[in-house]
Nucleic acid binder design. Structure first.
Length: 274
DNA sequence: CTGTAATCCTGCGAGC
DNA sequence: TGCTCGCAGGATTACA
């Protein structure tokens, strides 16, 4: 599941392959992705445009183009966004192929089509619109505002961490790993969390995300980086997907429950509900 | 405000 | 061996 660390890895991988390259051709499958390729009123063109920069915000990638436009990409659940030699065989579920001027191709592949690729005419406006809809980047959380936000909320912590308008970029895996690291139960409500525990949670999120980026993200099944390499952080999971296995701290069996429709893994001894 | 559930979609593994 | 079923869960929306 591509979350912030996976998307960041794709951005880092793609920068040396894409920045300065010009798009010379586009091939597209007929199958619909989550959002329209040409959003209403955004008609512009992509052929002949050069990639100026690649930006990541939360789980979104934005390719800034010459001519003022941008390509906005979300990997959804199973999306892959890779730069490969044009001679590489095209795999099933490839929905976009962008030919580049150096003999490589930028490809978007997504079996379940929860992802999207959209072309916007105004890069600046697109960046601003994203910003207005998203909360803090984990490495840019305001500590006092974070604590206030948690303590003013009656929602359970798991739901709060998945809320992209609060902290942006955390998904199911890193929410569970962060809560374990902060020793907080996923069903504890924000109002019940002490100031000190809020600080621990904020730091836990930042550390988990940073460690995951260092390991190039997590590959459960589908995820690969921008050069096609799998991630490595799945080998460092403390709780996610480890139901019944021993807690790394106390060896108690990890439990899984459903919170807001999502599987939530935790140690019943280290993470007591408050 | 908060919560629940449905929606989009395919692949895979469990169970029979 | 081949079938059905449940599950995976990011973002959004409808509804209680």
């Amino acid at each position: 599941m591509p979350e912030l660390p996976e998307v960041e890895t794709v951005a880092r991988d793609l920068r040396p392959l894409l920045v300065g390259r010009t798009i010379t051709a586009i091939t597209r499958s007929k199958l619909k992705l989550r959002n329209p390729w040409w959003p209403a009123g955004e008609k512009t063109h992509l052929l002949g445009r050069t990639v100026l920069a690649i930006h990541r915000r939360a789980k979104y990638l934005r390719l800034e183009l010459t001519g003022g436009g941008c390509l906005l990409v979300h990997l959804g659940m199973t999306g892959q966004f890779t730069g490969v030699p044009a001679t590489a065989p095209t795999e099933t579920h490839t929905h976009f192929v962008f030919d580049l001027d150096d003999g490589r191709q930028l490809r978007f592949r997504d079996a379940r089509r929860f992802g999207s690729v959209q072309l916007f005419a105004d890069n600046t406006a697109t960046a601003a619109a994203l910003d207005s809809q998203l909360g803090w980047e984990p490495n840019d959380i305001n500590p006092a505002d974070f604590t206030n936000g948690v303590r003013m909320s009656k929602r359970v912590l798991k739901v709060l961490l998945l809320d992209q308008t609060f902290v942006a970029g955390v998904g199911n895996i890193y929410a569970d790993e962060s809560l374990f690291r902060a020793k907080l139960h996923p069903e504890t409500r924000g109002v019940k969390v002490s100031n000190a525990a809020c600080d621990q949670l904020r730091i836990a999120i930042q550390e988990v995300i940073a460690r995951a980026i260092e390991s190039r993200g997590s590959t459960i099944r589908d995820y690969v980086g921008g050069s096609g390499l799998r991630g490595g952080f799945q080998h460092q999971f403390a709780v996610y997907g480890r139901t019944g296995e021993p807690c790394p701290t106390c060896a108690t069996a990890i439990k899984v429950i459903r919170v807001a429709g999502r599987s939530s893994h935790f140690c019943p001894k280290c993470q007591r509900k408050k």
